[in-house]
């Protein structure tokens, strides 16, 4: 205050002016930048809403024609113009479930190996290699599946399954049928390979967040590595692990090209996992280019909308799980 008064009056007002102008310019620039980033954020929101709404709009004819029955009937008859989405919905869920049954334990094993077992020099290269599986384009999974993997399934794996699992009382019907090689089991396995890198890398990341003192304490009490992993690491990271699993599930539900090649694409509801089925994304990819009536096209787009809803629900669950973990961390 006192130093200000010592300055000549003119200099003071000039520099105050400059500061004020500068502050003004900064404020304007700040405001502009704020609008810019907010606009970009809203654009992301608009892009998805637009995509979802355009699906709903395109599918309105199917929804209004078939109503709720669209979800519960198994007809898929382009000639008789009757469409029901139960077979693709069922196929999508079953193949994704098979994929999860395989991918979750395997991913847990990989994450455990990479965080607790492997010597440190081995961890980064192996982790990179596993994540490279996520980088292979899905059409290549499809071509490899059709020309290389399916013959192996039909000559070796499936005869083995039908011989030893087919006669079982309750699970038996799941493994009966001719050794075609294609079908829901094969599709589920290919999907599992595709989602393993996603789930295992999330698991690995969150396992690394477990505080060392927790693990050291358990080891000090004489726990084995497995006991530490099962009783300390997993409970601590439970919600995040579940979140990672759901991210993988979301990917498995929406996968198109790879599934199209190995699923068999038959609109039939069967108990056997060895029989061909269909999935939502595969149906769209297969039939969109040849849909020759309005109601057919609309039904396919309505399927796309259903897939949005399924993905939405799955991700919402994943998100809630992750948020719970974050909250727990905050309390700690």
């Amino acid at each position: 205050m006192s130093t200000d008064q010592a300055l000549p009056a003119g200099a003071l007002s000039a520099s105050a002016d400059a500061v004020a102008r500068r502050a003004d310019a900064d404020r304007r620039a700040d405001r502009f930048f704020r609008y810019l980033v907010t606009g970009a954020g809203l654009f992301v929101l608009a892009a998805l809403t637009g995509a979802a709404l355009s699906m709903l709009w395109g599918g309105r004819l199917a929804f209004s024609t078939f109503g709720f029955e669209f979800l519960t009937t198994t007809d898929w008859d382009a000639v008789g113009k009757k469409f029901g989405a139960l077979v693709p919905i069922y196929g999508t869920l079953v193949t994704a479930l098979i994929a999860m049954l395989i991918a979750v334990p395997v991913s847990f094993g990989i994450a455990l190996f990479l965080t607790e077992v492997a010597p440190p020099w081995l961890r980064t290269p192996v982790a990179s290699a596993i994540e490279l599986l996520a980088g292979i384009p899905s059409i290549i999974y499809g071509m490899w599946g059709l020309f290389v993997f399916v013959p192996v399934m039909s000559t070796t794996v499936i005869p083995f399954l039908t011989r030893y699992l087919g006669p079982l009382p309750i699970f038996g019907p799941l493994f009966q049928g001719p050794p075609l090689g294609i079908g829901m089991l094969t599709a589920g396995i290919v999907l599992a390979i595709m989602v393993i890198p996603f789930i295992s890398s999330v698991m690995r990341e969150v396992f690394l967040t477990v505080p060392t003192r927790l693990k050291e304490s358990a080891y000090a009490l004489g726990s084995t590595t497995w006991e530490v992993a099962w009783n300390v690491v997993l409970p601590y990271t439970r919600s995040a692990v579940i979140g990672g699993i759901f991210l993988g599930l979301g990917r498995a539900l929406g996968e198109t090209m790879a599934v199209t090649f190995v699923l068999g694409n038959a609109h039939q509801l069967t108990a056997s996992l060895l029989m061909p089925g269909n999935s939502i994304a595969a149906t769209i990819a297969n039939e969109f280019s040849e849909a020759d009536s309005d109601i057919y096209l609309s039904s396919l787009i309505a399927l796309g909308f259903l897939l949005f809803i399924v993905t939405f629900v799955v991700l919402a669950i994943a998100k809630l799980m992750l948020m719970r973990l974050n909250r727990n961390e905050g309390n700690r």
Partner: peptide, 17 residues
Amino acid sequence: FVNDILLSAPSIVLGLF
């Protein structure tokens, strides 16, 4: 949240859009 859905949305749907 919306961004995460976009992240796993089937790309064929974006193509149609």
